[in-house]
Computed example of a mutant assay.
Amino acid sequence: MQKIFKHIGTIVFIGFIILSACKQPAKTIKPGEIWLDNNGVHINAHGGGILYHQGTYFWFGEHKIEGKAGNKAYVGVHCYSSDDLCTWKDEGIALSVVEDTTSMIVKGCIVERPKVIYNAKNKQFVMWFHHELKGMAYKAAMTGVAVSDRVTGPYTYLRSVNPNPMCWPIDYADSLKTKDYNFEQVKRWSPQWQEASKQGVFLQRDYKRGQMARDMTLFVDEDGTAYHIHSSEENQTLHVAELNEDYTDFSGRYARVLEGKSNEAPAIFKRGDKYYMISSGCTGWKPNAARSAVANHPFGPWTELGNPCRGTEKEMQTTFQSQSTYVLPVQGAKDSFIYLGDRWTPENAIDGRYIWLPIEFSEDKPVIRWHDEWSLNTFN
């Protein structure tokens, strides 16, 4: 009889474990839905990027506040951590803006698209972000850098710069370096204006002070070389700029890519021996059709592959109502990548949503399809 009760007890215990497991939150991703952290608060990490370090994913993004004012930086860069990409722990503010009005990172400036990489040589975490000075709208077009010995921070702000002053891009034709475009006499967006832009009239204009750097991302190659990729030249041309060995400054080597193509929101990743980029057009807060491109080296040349999205015409023309911010390689799953995008709500910035979708490949081209709900098992 005791054996019978013992078996019944075992069965009940197992059933309890199964029932408890069924009641656990499903580890799935629901693009565009409210995404709660461990405190039950909507994750506040917009325009972000993710660093995988020692078995944990760390998500860094813009901390927004309510209303239109939230499109400026009044708090700083928020950090979250996760082991599974589905449940996230609030790690607090990694980089804070300050009250000091003499500081470039004073409250009310613009801090966008923060990305963090790890420098193994210095055992230091390095954050770069698009930085606009308070009261100057988007005229400064700078990029800022901060460092920390701890992945979650706090990060110490170092400086903001316009990249690569007094440096020409690699392989930029000598004949274009001193060409007189008579640009002020040319009508904006005319064929002549677009051709001059493609050839580098804005590059020439900014040669001494340093180049413009707006929407940006970071990429560290397998050999440890780090690149800062940003929209430059009045958002008409992307720059792929090599960072120094410390990742805290530019080396002076950079390339112009997709010249005159008007790309924003670049996100770079590597699959096999090819480098891929997903980006967007320049329509402000309004979504547009994504672009994709491929190259054999970060410096290019880059070959356009077209819109990676598949779905209805509206979905394809608006990238599922989102704009790219990062492409995340999934650890432990070869050639598996996640598209990270933002669904901006500029009227109430804090309500921005996150569009995360698995990337497929068809004939060596990235393909993104809509999923109402999906899990990492998709990659199996």
Rank of each mutant, 00 (worst) to 15 (best):
M1D: 12
K6R: 14
H7Y: 13
I8L: 15
I17C: 15
S20D: 13
S20Q: 14
A21L: 15
P25A: 08
K27F: 01
K27G: 00
K27Y: 05
I29C: 00
E33D: 03
W35Q: 06
W35N: 02
L36F: 14
G47T: 04
G47C: 02
G47N: 04
G48H: 07
L51V: 01
L51S: 09
L51P: 01
H53D: 13
Q54D: 15
T56M: 11
Y57E: 05
F58P: 12
I65C: 09
A69I: 11
A69P: 09
K72S: 15
Y74H: 12
Y74N: 10
C86P: 04
C86K: 07
C86R: 03
K89Q: 11
G92M: 01
A94S: 11
L95E: 03
S96H: 14
T102F: 07
I110Q: 04
V111I: 15
E112C: 08
P114A: 01
I117M: 12
K123Y: 09
Q124A: 00
A140M: 08
V151G: 12
V151C: 09
Y157Q: 01
S160R: 11
V161S: 06
N162L: 05
D171S: 09
Y172I: 08
S175I: 01
D180T: 09
Q185Y: 04
S190M: 05
Q194Y: 14
L203A: 13
K208Y: 14
Q211C: 10
Q211T: 12
D215H: 04
M216R: 00
M216T: 07
D223V: 02
T225F: 13
H228G: 06
H230Y: 13
N235Q: 10
Q236Y: 14
H239L: 11
R253Q: 11
Y254E: 09
A255G: 11
R256I: 02
G260H: 12
A265Y: 06
R271E: 12
D273P: 12
Y275D: 03
S279W: 07
H297M: 05
G300I: 06
T303K: 15
T303Q: 15
L305Q: 13
P308H: 02
E315C: 05
F320N: 02
T325S: 02
L328M: 13
L328S: 10
G332W: 03
G332T: 09
K334F: 04
S336N: 09
S336C: 11
D342H: 01
N348G: 03
G352H: 09
L357I: 08
P358H: 04
I359H: 03
D364S: 14
P366Y: 09
W370C: 01
D372A: 11
S375I: 00
L376T: 05
